[in-house]
């Protein structure tokens, strides 16, 4: 298709014909909606988008989009997306997943994706619970949450602080959104996609099924994030002090020159000649 004949895509054109398995009232519907809005706003062709996920309720998202997608291994969405983006820098690569997938089993990849700074947009739908395995504590579950039979006395561990940890690991773009605010979230997602490096969007996305009581007040609890940091050096302490975990907006955006993506592909086009030269090294 040429640019002149490409019809403008509406948000719903990015949806596939597959019906989500999510529970009624699940926050992830709002994230799906925000993402399609962002893609339509950016006018990205569907075939140039790849949405990569791991395992969990939120990781089901790629199949609900009419784009390329990969629903891979639990915790490994970021490296899979890294491989794709390095091999195919022409694509828009979006990574989607949950708090267990991204912060627990995939926690190491989260750290290294932040510091590697490949141009990915990573959307974590954080509902502070393992939904697909029926309601166990996740890294963002409060230590005194006693509703899981697996940890009847509560997980007893301080919560994982995704934004502060991403900042400490070198992420160049950090935002927080709320699934109940799809318009604001779609703006954050669009900015994250446009950011020329690793962009982390932490989305508060409540679970109506396993956290029905303690997440219903999120709508009242969220508030615009106020950033008192004046420099990168101040950003880490600012996120520690100022961030109550409910601040919405862009929390951190680093100088784009800090971006260190994959190297430019060399201009060497004659592959056979390159291999001949390599083989010639092996002779006397």
């Amino acid at each position: 298709m040429t640019a002149t004949t490409t019809p403008t895509l509406r948000a719903r054109d990015y949806l596939s014909d597959i019906k989500p398995i999510w529970c009624p009232g699940c926050g992830h519907f709002g994230v799906l909606s925000a993402l399609t809005k962002a893609l339509a706003y950016l006018e990205r062709p569907k075939e140039d988008i790849a949405v990569i996920s791991g395992i969990g309720c939120s990781s089901r998202l790629p199949a609900y989009l009419d784009c390329y997608g990969f629903h891979g291994l639990h915790g490994r969405a970021l490296p899979l997306a890294t491989g794709l983006k390095v091999a195919r820098p022409d694509l828009t690569v979006i990574v989607a997943g949950g708090d267990g997938d991204g912060f627990s089993i995939g926690g190491n990849h989260f750290l290294h994706a932040c510091r590697r700074n490949i141009d990915l947009c990573y959307i974590v739908m954080d509902n502070a619970v393992y939904g697909m395995t029926k309601g166990q504590a996740s890294p963002t579950t409060p230590p005194d949450w006693t509703r899981s039979p697996l940890t009847p006395n509560g997980p007893g561990i301080p919560v994982f602080r995704p934004a502060a940890i991403a900042l400490a690991a070198g992420a160049s773009f950090i935002a927080r959104g709320f699934s109940g605010d799809p318009h604001g979230l779609s703006e954050l997602v669009a900015r994250a996609i446009l950011h020329p490096g690793f962009a982390f969007v932490h989305v508060l996305s409540p679970c109506r099924t396993f956290r029905p009581d303690d997440q219903s007040d999120w709508k009242q609890g969220v508030h615009p994030f106020t950033d008192r940091a004046r420099s990168d050096a101040e950003a880490v302490p600012a996120l520690r002090v100022d961030d109550d975990g409910m601040g919405i907006g862009v929390l951190h955006e680093a100088d784009p020159t800090a971006h260190s993506g994959p190297k430019d592909t060399p201009a060497d086009t004659d592959r056979a000649a390159a291999i001949d030269r390599i083989e010639a090294e092996l002779e006397v």
């Binding site: 790849a50 990569i52 390329y68 990969f70 891979g72 291994l73 490994r76 490296p79 899979l80 997306a81 890294t82 491989g83 794709l84 983006k85 390095v86 091999a87 195919r88 694509l91």
Partner: peptide, 9 residues
């Protein structure tokens, strides 16, 4: 996983 992603590409 990086291999799987690049190969998918």
């Amino acid at each position: 996983s990086m291999l799987v992603g690049a190969s998918f590409g």
